[in-house]
Design a protein around this nucleic acid. Structure first.
Lengths: 212, 212
DNA sequence: TAGATTGTTAATCGATTAACAATC
DNA sequence: TAGATTGTTAATCGATTAACAATC
């Protein structure tokens, strides 16, 4: 078991895939798996699987492979998804409501504790048993409740100002659905879900693939 | 202007970012931009900008930079987003409805022409002026209407079978929101939006960043 | 012409793959 | 012990960065 050093972005992006596949294997009653087999399932080489896993520690056993349950537990702990996370959602539009209602987030410990919107028509609505609050109440709410993650489900033109407000409130983790690259200090963590970008990539690929 | 050859996945993933930034520049009334400046905006090096753009052709002008309008037009054409795309959505749950209602997709030429669900309670509902149809009607609908893209907004456990159905109907372009890595022949184009994966990456990063 | 900036080749860096000794 | 498979080092491959001649 070696000391954990720098972990590359490429490895980080693969972690959720490991988690998903190990979960599947576990619920399929499989206890042990080799890098070879896991690689085949995930579309990676056995070598890459071993390299990836070893950037966190020697979780395998020579001659046998990896314990599905143990490896899954390790990866959950590495990703921090064995802990609860409290989220607020900014914007009660399509995306904000979809996130609030997405059942597996709650089930996996990502709990939505408040939703805010600036539109008076939306304030007071119930979304998945949470009442939409006015944006005016945001500062006060954050000062009285622990918030781990802010979900940005608002238009691009308000997003940068909202980020600055978050920073002033000490919130440094943003899950951003607004179609904009936000400027941030480097201790702030932002992960983007740019739906239009994703659709445009699909468009590119269908345009440049034979038989389309 | 050189002949277009192989374009790496890394470049493809950056294309929508170019489009977004060029659109912003254009609406800001900026006509000309250097690789230097564009790089600063996008968080890339000038060198990378020039390499990226040159994998498609020499769109710049030595001494002057790139014409914002022209470059944007080229990139739109390269991504195929200057054309209309007809989408059907499989699943009228949170995600399916959010996609159907997302205004900028329609505005940008990605038109939802039908939504299907297997749940009888949902059939007949209106989502953004489209009536939810029964899955039984899917085959018939596809045979009588041109469909470019199928959006998978259904649970993971039904996704693989649905993909096979799509292939049998000749649909080879899938925008997949189901949390599963689908197995496909290689002329099929799939782009995944794995929301849980994205949230897990956020969790990893917040867990491993100082001051969190 | 002089200055600026591209297009493109070469150098570097990092990620993936291959190989193999260690060991279960 | 023999077979299997990891952990880890070395080789390869590809992407990013640097450098500079071409040219607007």
């Amino acid at each position: 078991m070696h000391v954990t050093g720098y972990v590359s972005e490429a490895v980080i992006k693969r972690l959720p895939g490991y988690y998903r596949h190990l979960r599947e294997l576990e619920s399929g009653g499989i206890f042990q798996i080799s890098s070879q087999e896991l690689g085949k399932r995930m579309g990676l080489t056995a070598s890459q699987i071993r390299q990836d896993i070893n950037s966190f520690g020697g979780f395998g056993r020579q001659g046998c492979g990896y314990s599905v349950q143990e490896l899954k537990k390790h990866i959950m702990s590495i990703m921090g998804i064995d802990k609860k996370h409290r989220m607020i959602i900014i914007g009660a539009g399509n995306i904000g409501c979809a996130v609030a209602r997405y059942p597996s987030f709650t089930r996996e410990g990502f709990q939505t504790i408040a939703i805010f919107d600036k539109d008076n028509a939306k304030i007071g609505l119930q979304v998945n048993e949470i009442t939409v609050k006015a944006l005016d109440e945001l500062d006060d709410f954050v000062r009285h409740n622990r918030v781990d993650i802010a979900v940005f489900a608002l238009p691009a033109n308000g997003a940068q100002a909202m980020l600055d407000q978050m920073l002033s409130l000490g919130i440094k983790t943003i899950w951003n659905f607004a179609p904009i690259d936000l400027k941030t200090p480097k201790d702030v963590v932002i992960v983007n879900v740019h739906l239009s970008d994703s659709l445009h990539i699909l468009s590119y690929k269908m345009t440049h693939t034979a038989h389309e």
